[in-house]
Each structure stands twice: as structure tokens, then as C-alpha cells.
């Protein structure tokens, strides 16, 4: 006999919508808002910068001027900003475990649900 799902009332649907909204904002936006996530690019400005010290040739100086940076001081922070790519192997392993673990979790739980779908669509093999 086909599975008959329960009917969800209006209040239940509103609660589900609210859960999804909270989940999206809480998991994705809140870390950004609290400054816990984001690019780790930090400027290392030079003292008394010149275009030459910043490694910019004549053509590049023209380009900076056209982009609204008339002197070396104004472009100092942008030119010297770099990502810090040093990382701990522990953090990398944790990331790998989380990514692989996520897919294993989804595929295994899906498999259980899929068997129910196939059994209902094609009939139980035992019958």
C-alpha cells in the first residue's frame, strides 16, 4: 500500500518557512556579520611610499592615475595587500573530513529514502 503522507497545516508550514529563513541567515549571513568569515587579505603599507618602491613602472603609474590613484600613497595599501596562505594541516584535514562527511551523509540517507521510492514505484521484491 502506498505511503500516505500526513497533511501539514498552515501553522506547520509557516514554522517550516521560518526555520528555513533562520537557517539561511544564521548559517551564512551571521558569520559574515560577526566578522568570523571573510577574506584574510591584509595590507602591509610602506612608509613614505614611491611608485618605484612599490614596483610600478611608468605605464602602470599612468594606469593608476586613470583609475583615480594619482600618487603612490593613495595606492599604497592596495598594492601591498596580500593573502596569507599559511595553513595548518589539521585545519585542512578537518575541512576534507567535513566535505567528504557531508556527501557520505547525504548519499547514505538518500539511499534509504530511494529504496522506499523504488519499492513503492516498482513493488516490493519480496511480494
Amino acid at each position: 500500500m502506498a505511503y500516505q503522507p500526513p497533511k501539514q497545516g498552515l501553522v506547520g508550514q509557516i514554522v517550516d518557512v521560518f526555520v528555513l529563513l533562520v537557517l539561511t541567515v544564521g548559517a551564512l549571513y551571521l558569520p559574515l556579520y560577526l566578522g568570523l568569515a571573510g577574506a584574510a587579505k591584509t595590507p602591509q603599507p610602506l612608509e613614505n611610499p614611491t611608485w618605484e618602491a612599490l614596483g610600478q613602472n611608468a605605464a602602470e603609474q599612468q594606469q593608476w592615475a586613470a583609475l583615480g590613484y594619482p600618487d603612490a600613497a593613495s595606492a599604497n595599501e592596495m598594492i601591498t595587500a596580500r593573502f596569507d596562505y599559511t595553513f595548518s594541516w589539521t585545519a585542512l584535514i578537518v575541512m576534507a573530513v567535513v566535505v567528504i562527511g557531508y556527501f557520505v551523509l547525504v548519499v547514505r540517507l538518500s539511499e534509504k529514502e530511494y529504496r522506499e521510492v523504488i519499492a513503492e514505484r516498482f513493488g516490493d521484491r519480496k511480494n
Binding site: 537557517l23 548559517a27 551564512l28 596562505y85 585545519a91 566535505v99
Partner: peptide, 21 residues
């Protein structure tokens, strides 16, 4: 992971919780 690792974890946390839900 290089530079945006925390966002990777945030995004996966979102999908894991949503999957369990």
C-alpha cells in the same frame, strides 16, 4: 580553503543542518 576557509565551513554547516532537517 586558501583565504575563504571559514565560509566553506559555514556553507557546509548550512547544508548539513538543512539535510538533517
Amino acid at each position: 580553503f586558501l583565504g575563504y576557509g571559514t565560509q566553506l565551513i559555514a556553507m557546509l554547516s548550512f547544508y548539513i543542518i538543512a539535510s538533517l532537517w
